[in-house]
Nucleic acid binder design. Structure first.
Lengths: 180, 180
DNA sequence: TGTCGCTATGCAAGTAGTTGCATAATCCTC
DNA sequence: GAGGATTATGCAACTACTTGCATAGCGACA
């Protein structure tokens, strides 16, 4: 259900094609929801079939035509109605922690290597989030005020990554300490 | 794939029935992976079918018989092999943040109410995590040393909840400030 | 004495998400 | 001028997960 409303929200801000949406998704929604391009296209078809989206084909030179989707009245209503309903609690899914839970099957060198790999990824994540944050603060005041709510998830993303990194660094230290 | 290895890991620590597993899951794995009892039973059947689990029926008085599952040699091998493989990156799924992303469809009173509801849930979560943490430190030294790695995810869970709560409290303040 | 919650297991049908592939033109690099 | 990335869309088959229901005895509460 959430993907459908993520799509509606993005199209509410600005109409676009599946491909556009996929890229905008990566730059905004991706730090609190993940989806592949197949999911996106399928969702667009479904929403269009249900009359929540309009679709106009836009011929392009050289490359395949774009299908530009935008909200219908029904789409806007569905979005507003959903926004007012209490959201389901999040589902936690952290494969790495399950692995850690079974960590006694690994040598401490293997553990270190895995941890450092994840640490690397999370640091990269943090860097892209912070870059995005900077971009936000470089926008004109008017936009900052209009989008401030939609910006809040990014702040949580940044703090969550920092927390993860701190935890992993401490765990590495503990591994060191227990080895010598 | 992760649920399957969560189940194997729990059964590796101690054999048990689907019902046992479900409860142990809630007390340990649930803060980094979620699963319903149906998923659990289905996974047990599958793992048993693939020869990774042994199953012995244990008749009980009054209540239905238990099926006690335990790892076979193949099960232990599969677990060890998986533990050494790099884990997939986590999939983020936070419905509430999508809702916030569409937050301009809500009145600020509605927003406040939703936020406070979530804040309440996260505070309750933090309290149960901390109680579990206390329980851990009351265990005998020997167990603390043996289980210290499996205990690390809980520490991350605690820090993550604290981060969430801090973020939500700040957001509430911002909502207040922008209202007056 | 009725119903609520707990222990204990499971089926069936549905929705959501993943993986792998396919097409096709254009732009850029070597 | 060959190969690869980018733009743009999509099918098919699969796996994972959810929802709603069913069964069935026991203990506690009111």
């Amino acid at each position: 259900m959430s993907l459908r409303f993520a799509v509606l929200t993005l199209l509410d801000i600005e109409p676009g094609s599946g491909y556009d949406l996929k890229r905008r998704f990566e730059r905004s929604v991706s730090y609190f929801w993940s989806a592949s391009h197949q999911q996106m296209y399928r969702e667009l078809h479904k929403l269009h079939g249900e009359g929540l989206l309009d679709c106009t084909e836009q011929p392009q030179e050289g490359r395949p035509d774009k299908k530009i989707y935008s909200l219908t009245g029904a789409g806007r209503m569905a979005l507003a109605e959903w926004a007012a309903r209490p959201a389901a609690a999040q589902k936690i899914r952290e494969p790495f922690l399950i692995q850690l839970f079974a960590g006694h099957h690994l040598s401490s060198a293997q553990l270190r290597a895995e941890l450092e790999r994840h640490l690397h990824e999370h640091r990269a994540m943090l860097a892209t989030y912070e870059a995005q944050n900077q971009r936000f603060y470089r926008r004109p005041q008017e936009q900052q005020q209009r989008l401030w709510l939609a910006h809040q998830p990014l702040l949580l993303g940044i703090e969550t990554e920092k927390t993860w990194i701190r935890w992993a660094e401490e765990l590495l230290e503990k591994l060191d300490a227990s080895n010598h």
